[in-house]
Design a protein around this nucleic acid. Structure first.
Lengths: 169, 169
DNA sequence: GGTGAAAATTTCGAAGG
DNA sequence: CCTTCGAAATTTTCACC
């Protein structure tokens, strides 16, 4: 008889203290060997490897990437863009979200509560490139108000999120 | 005769089209083997490996990290914080920059041109945690005005920057 | 869950066009 | 700057606490 096949979409086991340590280590340096990570969290390599596999299968770890120096590839300008859209239909929202998401200069894109409806972080080479981007943005869909704020200096920028400590259940 | 030894601090060679392809691939998936990356960019593994080593030595690739799902570790709230500092000394700025940089909830921190002086992206568990963060922020240094804007929905968030095409020299 | 070691891959470097 | 080849290291699997 065939197995009942209720697919394990995600196990969603609660993360223990060791899992949290592994996440902290890997968020800061994913080039370490499994044995080295094991050492740092107090595990030998097989159980450490199994935990990492599970964290990936569960979608806690979403991907491994290389980070690139923005300036060294000629992308010198970061802009925060605040958008007021005014009242719009669901169809409009879908069109807007798809159009903006497809723009590679848009690194982050959030729908906001309050006076600003959307917030973007945009990375481009220079003002000239930003102007081209801006025209592309405002011509893609009608927008009530768009405010661009330009970054002068990047003081801090990380990808590692602060993994909260394990609370007693 | 001994070689002249002028240390190569960084070669700063112009990135060619293959280097750019490698960066695009690695920014999206750093778990690939060198041989696989080589295939995708049309190189066998040794030269591909050497290029990756050079990109790391030159600081173009800054690090390799694992990305973690914010919600799966209980960090449900993203807040954009705009700060007006008013006029302040260099010493004040240093104190401010150090204090804010040291806060793990602060994922990004930029000095801005225009009406807003600083812009933060902050990630916390919930409103209660944000309130604690906010009090910590405003008590760390005197600030003229602080505006918090709350994200309702993350529509797009990537770490991969759009590597510009190679321009003819 | 965890250990330890074998098997399968991958990395890294040497030799050479 | 590229290719081929091989030694060293690492990842991944497996048998067993």
């Amino acid at each position: 008889m065939a197995e009942l096949s209720i697919p394990q979409v995600e196990s969603n086991r609660r993360l223990d203290a060791i899992d949290r340590k592994i996440l902290t280590v890997l968020q800061n340096d994913a080039s370490l060997s499994v044995a080295e990570i094991g050492d740092r969290v107090g595990l030998s390599s097989t159980p450490c490897w199994k935990r990492i596999q599970r964290l990936e299968a569960d979608g806690v770890i979403t991907k491994r990437v290389a980070l690139v120096d923005q300036n060294k590839i000629g992308l010198g300008l970061t802009v925060f863009v605040s958008i007021e859209s005014g009242d719009h239909s669901d169809a409009w929202l879908k069109t807007f979200a798809d159009a903006v998401s497809a723009m590679p200069e848009v690194i982050e894109f959030y729908r906001m509560a309050g006076d600003v409806d959307y917030m973007l972080r945009v990375v481009v080479a220079d003002m000239r490139s930003y102007d081209i981007f801006y025209k592309k943005l405002i011509s893609a869909v009608p927008l009530k108000n768009v405010t661009s704020r330009f970054a002068m200096e990047k003081i801090k920028s990380v990808t590692a999120l602060p993994v909260p400590a394990l609370e007693a259940a």
